[in-house]
Design a binder for these strands. Structure first.
Length: 428
RNA sequence: GGAGAAGUGGCAGAGCGGUUGAAUGCACCGGUCUUGAAAACCGGCGACGGGGCGACCCGUCCGAGGGUUCGAAUCCCUCCUUCUCCGCCA
């Protein structure tokens, strides 16, 4: 959520900045609501003040043993109007709030302006795509032997966009998760956290998935209105909701492995084949809670932490700075990491690292105290995949494949799979 | 699932329906004292919002939401959370 005060002070700048990301701010409506709010709020507070004064007078009169009946009668009409104004004001403020909750974050000034992903800017490439002397297969083919990756079995019980993994493949995914968590906790200073996979609507409002993107989520029929988390970002970032942290607690760096659930509404026909776009997938997520003046450097560091996984796994990738048109709702700046997939002969997103400035913090009421006795201020939040595990598995299969269909395991991962150097397809 | 108890400021913990944003203690900030520190003493110290150029003024908030009342932290209702006991259970 944007700070309503900057909307009041410099509406032009906000409207312009939002236009850069293709968002048409309802300027007229806002100005009308805001004018009305001001008028109403002043009036309401006058009435409240009047009521308080009179009630005190009644209390004093009563203490002196005077007759308070006439005083009470005089407050009658006041109460009527007050009640009406209070309700109007409440109504108006929730309208204003609803409007504000629909408005995305302001893009950082360094973000390239453009309509969609075609305007993204490549920052760097790391690693060389291998040039095998055989036609590379994609992970769906490579996963066939022994039912390593069994999409048909999953489809029978759950439908499309699910997978069953067996044997070595299931273990490889588990190893990847373990490896990533170890790397981030031991070498990058993150604290591992375990969090709920079902959250209430308030948590999703805090990070920005609600109210606008409910269609992307799976809702569990329940009194509490539970949704399955689409990313660990939601529960992990919500760890600081409603908190006033000590300056000394920052930065807070947390890592969590969770399954993620996405309805993928509106993506019919896209990536229907294989592991790329599933309703359920595993992800290791990095979250940082930092002081506002530290968020620029924190984003670069977070990105480096995610890149470290790809480097360790010897996977070629490139880093993209997303354009205004391709960024998520809550982000002010986002880098995507795209891994090379020989089976597709393309770079595909495997991590997304974003800074949210104070946008999520304001919704979450996540604050810190800059110094002893100082006023609380909103923190800045950041997060990034480190990495999407399913897609990492894809990259590992496709980049590690040999002519005979076996898969070479990167050295750093071998301790996690009992020293196995390569996966050999089981013969029928 | 059943029965009971409780939710007050950063923490602990008072609070008869009436000048209570809320006693007191701790913590924290400023000062006195001290070579320095500690102790002691004095003073200050919640959050959020609105109005005003400003000194300031005003409003809201005692788990959340409703209600009663001229007036609610105090009374009533609903919900949430925590604790204790019973039952069940991975």
């Amino acid at each position: 959520m944007l700070d309503i005060r900057i909307l009041r002070q410099d509406l032009d700048a906000v409207v312009t900045a939002l236009a850069r990301r293709g968002f048409d701010f309802e300027r007229e409506r806002f100005e009308q609501l805001e004018a009305r709010r001001k008028e109403l709020q002043v009036r309401t507070q006058e009435l409240q003040s009047e009521r308080n004064t009179r009630s005190k007078a009644i209390g004093q009169a009563k203490a002196r043993g005077e007759d308070i009946a006439p005083l009470k009668a005089a407050v009658g009409q006041l109460g009527e109007e007050l009640k009406a104004r209070e309700q109007e004001l409440q109504q108006l403020q929730s309208e204003l709030e609803d409007l504000l909750l629909q408005v995305p974050n302001l893009p950082h000034t360094h973000v390239p302006v453009g309509p969609d992903e075609t305007a993204n800017v490549e920052i760097r490439r790391v690693g060389e795509p291998a040039m095998p002397d055989f036609p590379p297969r994609d992970h769906v083919d490579l996963g066939l032997p022994g039912g390593w990756l069994d999409f048909e079995a999953a489809a029978r019980m759950a439908g499309s966009r699910f997978v069953v993994m067996r044997g070595e493949m299931a273990r490889l995914q588990r190893a990847l998760i373990q490896f990533m968590l170890d790397l981030h906790t031991r070498e990058h200073g993150y604290q591992e956290v375990y969090v709920p996979y079902l959250v209430n609507p308030g948590a999703l409002l805090g990070t920005g998935q609600l109210p606008k993107f409910d269609a992307d989520l799976f809702t569990v029929v329940s009194e509490q209105g539970f949704r399955l988390i689409p990313t660990a970002e939601v529960p992990v970032t919500n760890l600081v909701a409603q908190q006033i942290l000590d300056a000394g607690d920052l930065p807070l760096k947390m890592v969590a492995h969770t399954p993620c659930f996405r309805s993928e509404a509106g993506s019919y026909g896209r990536d229907v084949r294989g592991l790329i776009r599933q309703h359920q997938f595993e992800k290791v997520e990095l979250v940082q809670i930092v002081r506002p003046d530290a968020s620029e450097t924190a984003l670069e560091a977070l990105l480096a932490d995610a890149e470290a996984v790809l480097k360790a796994l010897e996977l070629p990738y490139r880093v993209m700075l997303l354009s205004t048109g391709d960024m998520g709702f809550s982000a002010t700046r986002t880098y995507d990491i795209e891994v090379w997939l020989p089976g597709q002969q393309a770079y595909r997103e495997i991590s997304s690292c974003s800074s949210f400035s104070d946008f999520q913090a304001r919704r979450l009421q996540a604050r810190y105290r800059p110094g002893p006795g100082a006023k609380p201020e909103l923190v800045h939040t950041l997060n990034g995949s480190g990495l999407a595990v399913g897609r990492t598995l894809v990259a590992l299969l496709e980049n590690g494949q040999q002519a005979d269909g076996s898969i070479v395991i990167p050295e750093r991962l071998r301790p996690y799979v009992g020293g196995t150097e390569r996966l050999v397809p089981p013969s029928e």
